[in-house]
Amino acid sequence: MLNRISTYFYRRPRLVLAIFLAPPILYMLVVYLGSLFSLLINSFYSIDDFTGIIVREFTLRTYAQIFNPANREIFLRTASMAAIVTVVDAMLAFPLAYYIAKFASRRLKTWLLIGVTIPLWSSYLVRVYAWKLILAKEGILSWFIDLFHLTGVLDWLLSFPAIGGSSLSLSPIGMFIVFVYIWLPYMIIPIQTALERVPASLLEASSDLGAKPFQTFRNVILPLAFPGVVAGSIFTFSLTLGDFIVPLTLGNSKFFVGQAVFSYQGTGGNIPLAAAMTMGPVLIMVAYLLIARKLGAFDAL
């Protein structure tokens, strides 16, 4: 009996394919893309200013609201944070990625990769929480800063209204540190993967042709690692753009995109505006993904 069923299916590979493919595709199409579509629809609705009820009629009014000065400022602030975080993460990630890819022995490499991936997968929330402890006014970082008699420098930095605040745990500088920390593994892995593919013979050829180590680094390694940097920056940029936990935990009254969406949707009850605002990050991400694909960054993912 089983043999006959087996033969029946063996002769119909298309049917088997359909059976395999249907559950995951249906799930993703219905649940995920369906939800994204409903979000898109909602972004074209608007909210009645007096009753606070959602008006289910097509309008572009909600999108117009995004471009009012307050929201524009939120976008600008978030995008600058995401950009700086991405650049700093790339600089921090490179040495470790380079070391893993080109210098570590095979055994060490396995352990180092585990060392990078454990923070990548482990609780994001707990990792944010850790910094609440570290950055607290009476906390461990302040103690070290005091130890080196640098409290004056810290207070001076915190006195700038754009980046400062009452303490590190309630300031854009603190947010920046936490963002850099949280997304760093997402940058290390793609750069390491890209560097892994640079053949050793290429580096030998470069030095045989008389290039100094720095020249080899600058003219051979760096260009070949670039797709990895782009792949990593997809994550660091997008994740910073949409995050609301870090701004809610460490930020002040100046909103970031994720936080604004969270509050419009929650306390504000303005789902159309929240939906329209998420379309910003979605569009940026799609454009980003398309450019990244052109640059061949997907191969490094």
């Binding site: 493919l21 995951p24 595709i25 993703m28 199409l29 649940v31 995920y32 893309l33 369906g34 939800s35 994204l36 409903s38 979000l39 909602n42 997809i234 994550f235 997008s238 994740l239 753009l241 949409g242 995050d243 609301f244 994720g258 969406v261 969270f262 949707q265 789902i271 929240a274 939906a275 998420t278 990050p281 979605v282 991400m285 993904l289």
Partner: peptide, 27 residues
């Protein structure tokens, strides 16, 4: 496109996935 479709929920910011599901479920 399969890989692309499957990776989308972790490539897009979590807030997009979250609010999309919320509007769909609520709707």
């Amino acid at each position: 496109s399969i890989s692309f479709l499957l990776v989308l929920p972790i490539a897009l910011p979590g807030i997009v996935t979250g609010i999309a599901l919320r509007t769909a479920i609520g709707g």
